[in-house]
Design a protein around this nucleic acid. Sequence first.
DNA 1: ACGGTAACTGTCCGAACGGTCAGATCTGAC
DNA 2: GTCAGATCTGACCGTTCGGACAGTTACCGT
Lengths: 195, 195
Amino acid sequence: MARTSSGLHERLLASALRLFVSRGFRGTSLADIAADVGCSKASLLYHFSNKEAILTELLMPVGNEVFDLDARLAELDGEEAAVTAIQSFVGITLRFRREIKLLFDNLADVSCLPDLGVEAIDGIRDRLIDAVAGRSTDPRDRIAASIALGGIFATGAADLPYDDRTLREALLTGALRTLGLGPDRAGLDSELGKN
Amino acid sequence: MARTSSGLHERLLASALRLFVSRGFRGTSLADIAADVGCSKASLLYHFSNKEAILTELLMPVGNEVFDLDARLAELDGEEAAVTAIQSFVGITLRFRREIKLLFDNLADVSCLPDLGVEAIDGIRDRLIDAVAGRSTDPRDRIAASIALGGIFATGAADLPYDDRTLREALLTGALRTLGLGPDRAGLDSELGKN
DNA sequence: ACGGTAACTGTCCGAACGGTCAGATCTGAC
DNA sequence: GTCAGATCTGACCGTTCGGACAGTTACCGT
């Protein structure tokens, strides 16, 4: 039935994600993935043109979200750009935790990808830093922006034993504090009805 | 002369570091390293028992420093532990920038190492977070600690075009601000005669 | 001079792995 | 039923790579 065949593609993606995250991209062979879902390696290569294509397809959703964010940020400036960037980046990081871990743990391999190559990643990173720094050129602001973004990235990749709500709030306030943008605690507390 | 033979070991390490950083650990073959220094692959394997041993020896200095830091922190508590941890971690990160980048880009491979395996890394990370969080168990404090440490780590790995002095100062103030330990700006500014 | 040890190398090997291909099977439309 | 196209597979291939090994050279103490 069509269900089985079209479902195989998704099941292959799910297995690949799981295995890539636990054993790494290079540490996972096509045979591993095929065995995990119970199909042949040839069948796997019928659904994906090659191994890199699997990784690309796994990371595409995150890539698109970050790409969209990048476009939206282009029109913003100052504190508005910084806060929007941080909020959105935290959201993306939490929504794609496993993909973020995959990316975080396999940066060297992802950097060699044709679509999501190192130049794309570096470009996005630089523009994100630019936004988070509020378009400031002061090294201190840009380094603070790098800490905030890198910190969110790394924290998202490390699966800490906290629920999404806690993580979102703490990542947000932490990152904004890094930037010196003390989120008027009164406003946040009342919004979240906490403390 | 003995100089040549004992120097080969160091030259191999230097080449391996350079190649690992630029092409990744898995993306660099033993033949690549040997060719880079101009010796045979067999000679390379005379100096290092296997490929992993090269990576281990490259990362050992950083590992030892972090290990020492971990031991020193065990006796500290509260804000003192946090500030000491951040200061030392910034120092280590800057002193071993290339090794940090190597580690950052090849986490999946390093995690499989026998000596510096995933359990060692995770253990160190957890204890560092504990110290940076000032031994607090509040999720917000621990997540903030994770942001600070991850941010320093990621920023050190990304070779931003700033000199060590600028980076050290900005990393320090940024990370401490993340923790809510606003280094009384007046004191710092006057100390550095800035602004 | 000589013997031993450290440094070094050419050659070979086995295993792993990504990828190809010709064909088998299945499915749905007519 | 039959045909076309999609799906799936076993078998096979070429390459790459880490590593083993036997043998050679250089060095050094005696």
